[in-house]
Design a protein around this nucleic acid. Structure first.
Length: 897
RNA sequence: GGGUUCAUAGCUCAGCCGGUUCAGAGCACCUGCCUUACAAGCAGGGGGUCACAGGUUCGAAUCCUGUUGAACCCA
């Protein structure tokens, strides 16, 4: 069979992608096998594949493919997330380009534009995942705004409301003035270095006195919202003023001076102006001291009439800040300004400065609903990989805050609250308008209410308030047939799919959404099924460039994944990503890694070519064949066990590296060279059979990592009509440590001879004869001797002394080898120096060992194994010294002759 | 400001519930080789006082304390 020398992946990968798709090779339906389920962290529906997705999804695919081979019914559910804010922002931008403003449109008109956009771009990322070879059950593709999913989200809102977990309230939230929506804490970013701001030192006159307090603030535009001035109760400078009043600059309102421990004495002037409507800490102080709230901002960040300065009304807060400086200066109240840096929160989506704002929003009470979610992680029911994230998780859980779930957007699940009157409590919550009407009639006591009299809340839910149901609703957990309204639980026994596939096995995601999403899925899983949603959480690192910078569009340092796959082959990119990505560690990505992957694919391809080129002869196994196959069967078992162990510990990078070394070094460099028939000879039938068996086992082990090339080789081998993904995962046998150690010893000798040949510049084709001392004769009787003679190019090893006195020597595995040479060319003094160095080192080594062995405390306390080892080191070193000394004496004698 | 994690070859990392040569791997580097599977290759080699300073121990990269430096999370 003709096989090209260079592996070219493009055509082969295209063919297998198509085959897998057309044959639904990854489809799963419940059967008698145990299930192994992964739900994809749904990417943003309008997103495109980036390197983070590549890493994340490659890892998932590795898990799924391996599980499939291990006899599990593996099911990987794909899908996308509607990403409320991000998608709405994109649609708004797209409309703006067309000259349409969102506010010109009705909600329905806007949504039809949005769905149009989603239909056009929504499939891109899933198609890209298919390129990657992701073995998802594509028929199960789910979108968080699919009809059934939409209903599930609404159902959960209603259910939680009736359970008392959801409330509507006035709270301090993060407000995005540009998108005019609330944000969760997690959606607010702080730049790493902080931002340049100005401190304004402002005089606040004390009532009934000529004195004043000086207050430092970075937000002078909020002065008009001040309701108190706070000082630390232990601050002697101000103690006498507590209880008195100061006058708010410019507007003349009298406010009290209060004492609160929150104030830091050393920060600024030690006096804090308290503006409960515009700062979360001030809000807390306000609550403690029963202060009024003066909200001077509109929802777009402009000032309103409450600021009491007519010329400021309608102006943006930053404009007012600039104007305040002049105004305060004119009034003689500005003491000085000072430049400083501080951390400023900006919206993840619009980058506008986030405004702490009091607003009427919907919340989930997290304390109560999440009580079990910490426990299941602490007790190991759910394992985080790497486990260091438990601390982070615990910290968040113990300090969990109520979750603001309303967003002032249109793209998303509309909050099912219906208002029938102007009062704060004049609303009902229901899954449908009809139900709402019934409830409203009852609650209002007005039986004549009509559907028209109800207004649905205009807001939608936070995206995470839909994706936290992901592992449940991809299997229809909240559908009518299995959701029990009475108990507010999912009845697993009435949902065949869910009861089979849930809980899922492992969730692969990024640490940054541990709280956003992971924690909340755990909460939802426990709330609705009393069961955890997954057993393991594998947290990937961030993909950075080789300078350690996070890959981002704005930096332009992120390679295009499709281009990479085209250039190096998908298998190559997959293993390239995994070479250096232990769980939870950032991955410094370099195209070199893909190159390494490509070279690996090529190496495998050529090993396949070699093996395929052999025509067997009907003859018994030769000695070297028997020895080689014997060794490799143990090596293979040993490595499989190691790989399995790495997988159990979720160290897939380690598993890959073990396999990489097994294939490249152990199999190609040692085994194949060992068993390769010499010129003009043929391999025996049995040896070829073993070799093929080993190679195809290696291909199976590699399949999760490199699905395309392994599938291709499997097919070309014509050994098995199944797809390689349907073949069983290789099982290790007991590996004999002695066999491995013996091999190690002979391999060491081979390397030593090669090194010697190198330094002596002996031509590769020249067979040489070496001499050893008769006391080492036993190495000539071991079956692995042929490894040494074959791979080191030896003619023979003799136990007789060389006929010439001129020799060069080298040590390998504790044995001295002598190589006779032309007497004239030997440099005795150089040889003597070399041996002297070796001798010095060995004596030093022996000293160190003797210090231990002669120390009675060591002999008393050290475990027996360690003691034995040290004693062996001692006798080995002594023997070596003896050999070296003998040799040294010989040479010295020769040298003086 | 609070919390967490980390500091081992030029780079990325293993090892770290103390003791399998006072340390391994991959990449990079250097030296030979176009040896009939593979130059996207083969063979060989150099390179680390395990951040610094103390302490515990017969014995510490591995445990404890401090110092310095870095990263992340929360406020």
């Amino acid at each position: 069979m003709h096989i090209p020398t260079k592996y070219s992946p493009a055509e082969i990968e295209r063919r297998w992608r198509q085959f897998w798709q057309e044959n639904d090779s990854f489809a799963s339906t419940p059967d008698e096998r145990p299930s192994y389920t992964i739900v994809i962290p749904p990417p943003n529906v309008t997103g495109v594949l980036h390197m983070g997705h590549m890493l994340n999804n490659t890892i998932q695919d590795v898990f799924v493919r391996r599980a499939r081979m291990r006899g599990f019914n593996a099911c990987w559910v794909p899908g996308t997330d509607h990403a409320s804010i991000a998608t709405e922002a994109k649609v708004v931008a797209m409309l703006r380009e067309k000259g349409i403003s969102k506010h010109q449109l009705t909600r329905d008109e806007f949504l039809s534009h949005a769905f149009e956009w989603k239909d056009k771009y929504g499939g891109i990322i899933l198609e890209q995942l298919k390129l990657l070879g992701a073995s998802c059950d594509w028929k199960r593709t789910t979108f968080t705004m699919d009809d059934h999913y939409y209903r599930a989200v609404i159902r959960v809102f209603v259910d939680l409301y009736h359970k008392g977990y959801i409330y509507r309230g006035l709270r301090m939230i993060n407000w995005d003035c540009e998108a005019r929506t609330a944000l969760s804490n997690e959606e607010v970013n702080y730049s790493e270095e902080g931002e340049q701001v100005t401190f304004y030192y402002v005089k606040y006159p004390i009532k009934g006195s000529e004195q004043h307090l000086t207050i430092a603030t970075v937000r002078p535009e909020t002065i008009m919202g001040d309701v108190a001035v706070a000082v630390n109760p232990t601050d002697e400078r101000y103690a006498h003023l507590i209880g008195q009043k100061v006058i708010v600059p410019l507007i003349g309102r009298e406010i009290p001076i209060i004492a609160d421990e929150y104030v830091e004495k050393d920060f600024g002037t030690g006096c804090l102006k308290v503006t409960p409507a515009h700062d979360p800490n001030d809000y807390e102080i306000g609550l403690r001291h029963n202060l009024p709230i003066v909200d001077i901002l509109n929802d777009d960040g402009t000032l309103n009439a409450l600021c009491e300065i007519p010329e400021f009304v309608g102006l943006d807060r930053f404009k007012v800040r600039a104007l305040m400086k002049d105004k305060l200066q004119q009034a003689g109240l500005l003491v000085k300004t000072e430049e400083t840096t501080t951390r400023i929160g900006r919206s993840e989506r619009t980058n506008s400065v986030v405004e702490p704002r009091l607003s009427l929003q919907w919340f989930i009470r997290m304390k109560e609903i999440s009580s079990r979610a910490l426990q299941v992680v602490e007790n190991g029911d759910i394992q985080l990989h790497p486990p260091k994230f438990i601390n982070t998780y615990r910290h968040w859980m113990e300090n969990v805050k109520d979750w603001c779930i309303s967003r002032q957007l249109w793209w998303g699940h509309r909050i099912p609250a219906y208002y029938y009157g102007p009062g704060q409590d004049d609303f009902v919550v229901a899954e449908t308008l009809e139900e709402a009407l019934q409830l409203a009639r009852k609650k209002s006591g007005n039986p004549y209410l009509q559907a028209n009299d109800l207004t649905q809340d205009p807001d939608v839910l936070d995206t995470w308030a839909s994706s936290w149901l992901w592992p449940l609703q991809v299997f229809g957990g909240f559908n009518d047939d299995c959701f029990d309204h009475q108990t507010g639980k999912i009845n697993l026994s009435k949902n065949k799919e869910l009861s089979y596939y849930y809980p899922t096995e492992v969730l692969v995601t990024a640490p940054e959404i541990l709280f956003f999403w992971v924690a909340r899925m755990i909460i939802a899983g426990l709330e609705y099924t009393d069961t955890i949603p997954f057993r393991h959480v594998y947290l990937t690192g961030i993909v950075r460039d080789n300078l350690g910078r996070k890959m981002s569009k704005s930096l332009g340092n992120s390679p295009d994944p499709e281009l990479l796959m085209e250039r190096y082959g998908t298998d190559a990119v997959r293993v390239g990503m995994l070479f250096s990505s232990p769980a939870g560690n950032d991955l410094l990505f370099d195209e070199k890694l893909c190159e390494q992957g490509r070279n690996f694919a090529n190496k495998i391809w050529n090993a396949f070519r070699l093996i395929s080129s052999w025509t067997p002869a009907d003859q018994p196994m030769r000695d070297y064949e028997a020895a080689a196959t014997h060794w490799f069967s143990h090596q293979l078992s040993h490595s499989i066990a190691q790989i399995d162990d790495s997988f159990e510990k979720f160290r897939i990078s380690e598993a890959l590296l073990t396999l990489y070394e097994l294939i490249w070094d152990k199999f190609c460099s040692w085994y194949l060279e060992w068993i390769k028939p010499p010129h003009g000879q043929q391999i025996s039938v049995e040896a070829l059979h073993f070799t093929e068996s080993y190679f195809f086992q290696l291909m199976r082990l590699l399949h999760p990592f490199m699905p395309f090339i392994t599938e291709e080789i499997h097919r070309l081998s014509n050994r098995d009509t199944r797809l390689i993904m349907q073949t069983p995962w290789p099982q290790p046998k007991e590996a004999d440590a002695q066999v491995l150690a013996d091999f190690q010893r002979y391999a060491e000798m081979v390397s030593a001879v090669r090194n010697f040949r190198n330094t002596e510049q002996i031509h590769p084709k020249e067979k040489i004869t070496l001499h050893i001392h008769p006391s080492h004769e036993h190495i000539l009787r071991h079956p692995f001797l042929n490894l040494l003679t074959k791979l080191a190019g030896l003619h023979s090893i003799l136990t007789t002394p060389p006929t010439t006195t001129a020799t060069k020597t080298f040590l390998a595995a504790g044995i001295e080898f002598l190589y006779p040479i032309d007497e004239a060319s030997v440099d005795l003094s150089q040889e003597i120096e070399k041996i002297q160095q070796e001798l010095d080192y060995t004596r030093g080594f022996l000293d160190a060992v003797l210090r231990k062995v002669n120390n009675p405390k060591f002999m008393e306390n050290a475990p027996e194994k360690v003691r034995e080892l040290e004693l062996k080191k001692k006798s080995d070193a002594e023997a070596k010294i003896e050999t070296l000394t003998r040799r040294l004496n010989q040479l010295t004698k020769l040298n003086t002759q």
